[in-house]
Amino acid sequence: MNVPDDLFYTESHEWVRREGDNARVGITDHAQAELTDVVYVELPKVGAAVEARGPIAVVESVKAASDIYAPVKGTVVEVNKALEANPALINTDPFGEGWIFVLKMDSPDDVKQLKDAAGYRKAIG
């Protein structure tokens, strides 16, 4: 299972790529493999303010709707519109084209509260 070393991770299987004061967020390879066949993504609204661990988006597979949580406190500054036409990008490229949204973090140091790759690998066994 692919767990890139340069990302941060949540227990709820989101990944975070720090880009200055911003955090790009998606779901992990492990999460997409468990969900399989993503058929719909409900994106957050640009400008929405969100607390850490607050539900912010929904990813739906054939079988289930799953909440996606904000890894850190911040404001949505960008969403991946490509997922509206092609939600399966989350399956085919979870750490790349399948990103879901970008948060401007209230406190960029918050990412330090998240798991690193080794910690996440341990968590998913």
């Binding site: 709820s12 468990e34 969900l35 709707a65 909440d67 949580y69 066994g125």
Partner: peptide
């Protein structure tokens, strides 16, 4: 049981 309506990503990732 097959129609699991809404659950968190966390609970989706249950192993056997």
């Amino acid at each position: 049981e097959t129609s699991i309506e809404r659950r968190s990503a966390r609970s989706t990732c249950v192993d056997t």
